[in-house]
Amino acid sequence: MSAPSPTKAPADRPSAEPGPAGAGTEGRPRRSGTATAGRPHAAWALPGVLFFGFFAVVPMGLAFYLSFTSWDGLGDPTPVGLDNWRKLLDDDRMLQSLWLTVLLTVVSWAFQTVIALLLGVWAAGRQRNRAVLSAIFFVPFLLSSTAIALLFYALLDPNFGIIQENILGSSSGAFLAIVFVGGWQFIPFHTLLYQGGARQIPEVLYQAAAIDGAGRHRQFFSITLPQLRHTITTSTVLMVVGSLTYFETVLILTKGGPGTDTAVLPYLMYEAGFKSYDFGYASAIASFLVLAATGLSLILVRLTGFGGMRSTREGM
């Protein structure tokens, strides 16, 4: 989905290595052990690196360059120095978009994490009905976000939909619809992460807890949750970066409306670029998004100690 985060996380690992000592001594030998056992040559990464470089780094660099120019898409860009960046700081709509983006990120995170975590832990059980249901739950993630948005747009039609209310025409209704549709699409993916994470938790921990008399709730809060903390970080980073770049659903469901009340940053960028043809300003917003997304994922990774992680079984 978004380019910066997946590369940032692994790249961050070596630099954080000297930091947290905890399990370091135990982790290190295991690591070099795998290195001697037929580690692939660096050249193997070449196709991936080239692909990423050409389709992510180069366009990003160009957008950054364009953010210092004025360009209407025709002819040549004219350098304008910091004008676009100054406008960015000055623009009331930018401020509103930033606030909406933050709000969307936080609300989506809360909505998706709670449901995905519970569903994921539930789905981690080995019962057959759970396996069947988890497969069904996963279906929305396989659909294209455009198709999902169009589907919900039809369902929310005020005259001919299933809920005949003016949902997309009211500010809070439109916002919550976007949160809901986003959740509907991405919860399955995060459920899968949590399902995998929960299955990694050794059974012995629960057995020991049971002997000590811990009930189901106690087991969930004292074993499952702490054991899942790296999964929570991963899932959070993906959700945050995903929310920052959330676009198609907004375009199709609300076009940023009513008024400008759901015009999140990516939509504002689209509007500046492909409605007003002010590619310089659009690129400034895009660059800001890249910086914000990268910065946020770095901060999240640092804060949670994710960078020092040796193995998902750390803490055992």
Partner: peptide, 12 residues
Amino acid sequence: RWILGAGATTLL
């Protein structure tokens, strides 16, 4: 111009 166009297109 081609590169710029391509860049803007990909990114946006």
